[in-house]
Simulated assay, not measured.
Amino acid sequence: MNQAETLKNMPDAALGTAFYPASPRVICITSGKGGVGKTNVAVNLAYGLRKKGKRVLLLDADLNLANIDVLLGLTPRYNLHNVFLGEKTLRDILIEGPAGMHILPASSGIMEMADLSESQKLSFMTEIEVFDHAMDYLLIDTGAGINNNVVYFNLAARERIVVLSPEPTSLTDAYALIKVLALQHDVKSFRILINSAQGEKEAIQVFRKLSLVADRFLPSLSLDFLGHIPFDSKLPQAVRKQRLVSELFPEAAASRSFLRLAQKLVEEKPEPLADGNIKFFWQGLFDL
């Protein structure tokens, strides 16, 4: 029986304690602009964490334009749309991806998924608690932009990784997302990852531009330079084959960078959780 099937078949009581005594790190991977490689970052980071021996649940939170399954060449029978219709539970739709990561797939082309209702958020909050203590990391791959779903999932996470590319429009849109979360929702801490950079020098230049704007208009903000993923011709080759670059070309520059990023997260000592429960993160949203 594979790991996904193990989770599906495990009783609720056992799910709470079977694997790890501590709750997972909940990390949102987000961006202001589409096309910056955010989903590639999410899936390759999940792969890297699995290679480090961590149990990972990857949530496709681009609810009406999902593409994690397409990127990985997977064909899930059910997805989050079936959950919100009340037809399936999260455990029913759980699938296994590369290296044994667990994936909660979303739907594509279904407009009603573009803006979750409060009751749907509450239902999801209750469902996701089933996986508490059954994983080390919950990675949330959001949609692009600043719509309600993107804001919701950013607020649900303890940590946020904002993915930028060196393009000026990417920087502008990332700042817009950060500004909305900071001014309207009092989010003060963001980690910045520059994707498709020609080198560390260019990545640092992009980060400094963002920091200068943030320091001027959002002085109480904390921006942490997480690093960069280099431009790598192997990555689009892997995408065309519907495989992870980290899996297909493990010695590629991008693959090595994803693994170093995973190692950095593993070596960090995360801040203690407020109540040791994923539900804490979701419940806080309903006070807005």
Rank of each mutant, 00 (worst) to 15 (best):
residue 45 L to P: 07
residue 45 L to N: 07
residue 46 A to E: 10
residue 47 Y to T: 00
residue 47 Y to K: 04
residue 47 Y to M: 04
residue 48 G to V: 01
residue 48 G to F: 02
residue 48 G to L: 07
residue 49 L to W: 11
residue 49 L to K: 06
residue 50 R to T: 10
residue 51 K to C: 14
residue 51 K to T: 11
residue 53 G to Y: 06
residue 53 G to F: 06
residue 53 G to I: 09
residue 54 K to I: 05
residue 55 R to D: 14
residue 55 R to W: 05
residue 55 R to C: 02
residue 56 V to R: 06
residue 58 L to V: 02
residue 61 A to K: 09
residue 61 A to E: 02
residue 61 A to H: 05
residue 63 L to K: 00
residue 63 L to M: 11
residue 63 L to R: 00
residue 63 L to S: 00
residue 64 N to P: 05
residue 64 N to T: 04
residue 66 A to N: 07
residue 66 A to V: 09
residue 67 N to E: 10
residue 68 I to D: 07
residue 70 V to R: 12
residue 70 V to E: 13
residue 71 L to G: 02
residue 71 L to S: 08
residue 72 L to G: 04
residue 74 L to C: 08
residue 74 L to D: 14
residue 77 R to K: 14
residue 77 R to D: 15
residue 78 Y to P: 09
residue 78 Y to T: 06
residue 79 N to V: 08
residue 80 L to M: 15
residue 80 L to G: 09
residue 82 N to Q: 13
residue 82 N to A: 12
residue 83 V to T: 01
residue 83 V to I: 10
residue 83 V to G: 03
residue 84 F to H: 11
residue 87 E to L: 14
residue 87 E to R: 13
residue 88 K to A: 09
residue 89 T to D: 15
residue 92 D to F: 02
residue 93 I to V: 13
residue 94 L to R: 05
residue 96 E to D: 13
residue 96 E to R: 00
residue 97 G to V: 05
residue 97 G to K: 01
residue 97 G to H: 03
residue 98 P to K: 04
residue 99 A to N: 15
residue 100 G to Q: 13
residue 100 G to C: 08
residue 101 M to W: 02
residue 101 M to L: 14
residue 103 I to F: 07
residue 104 L to M: 08
residue 104 L to T: 01
residue 105 P to R: 04
residue 106 A to K: 02
residue 108 S to I: 12
residue 108 S to L: 13
residue 109 G to R: 06
residue 110 I to E: 07
residue 110 I to T: 03
residue 110 I to R: 12
residue 111 M to I: 09
residue 112 E to Y: 05
residue 112 E to C: 00
residue 114 A to C: 09
residue 115 D to K: 12
residue 116 L to F: 07
residue 117 S to N: 08
residue 118 E to S: 02
residue 121 K to M: 15
residue 121 K to C: 15
residue 121 K to E: 15
residue 122 L to T: 11
residue 124 F to Q: 02
residue 125 M to W: 05
residue 126 T to I: 13
residue 127 E to F: 00
residue 127 E to S: 08
residue 127 E to A: 14
residue 127 E to N: 03
residue 128 I to Y: 07
residue 129 E to V: 01
residue 129 E to A: 12
residue 129 E to P: 01
residue 131 F to S: 01
residue 133 H to K: 13
residue 133 H to V: 01
residue 133 H to C: 10
residue 135 M to V: 10
residue 135 M to G: 04
residue 136 D to R: 00
residue 136 D to Q: 07
residue 137 Y to G: 00
residue 140 I to M: 09
residue 141 D to A: 08
residue 142 T to D: 05
residue 142 T to S: 09
residue 144 A to C: 09
residue 144 A to S: 12
residue 144 A to N: 02
residue 145 G to Q: 10
residue 145 G to K: 05
residue 147 N to A: 02
residue 147 N to F: 01
residue 147 N to V: 03
residue 148 N to F: 10
residue 150 V to P: 08
residue 151 V to C: 11
residue 151 V to L: 15
residue 153 F to P: 01
residue 153 F to V: 01
residue 153 F to L: 02
residue 155 L to F: 09
residue 156 A to P: 03
residue 156 A to H: 01
residue 156 A to K: 00
residue 156 A to C: 12
residue 157 A to I: 00
residue 158 R to E: 15
residue 158 R to P: 06
residue 159 E to F: 10
residue 161 I to W: 14
residue 161 I to P: 13
residue 161 I to M: 11
residue 164 L to M: 13
residue 167 E to P: 11
residue 167 E to G: 03
residue 169 T to M: 11
residue 170 S to I: 10
residue 171 L to G: 05
residue 172 T to Q: 11
residue 173 D to R: 12
residue 174 A to G: 15
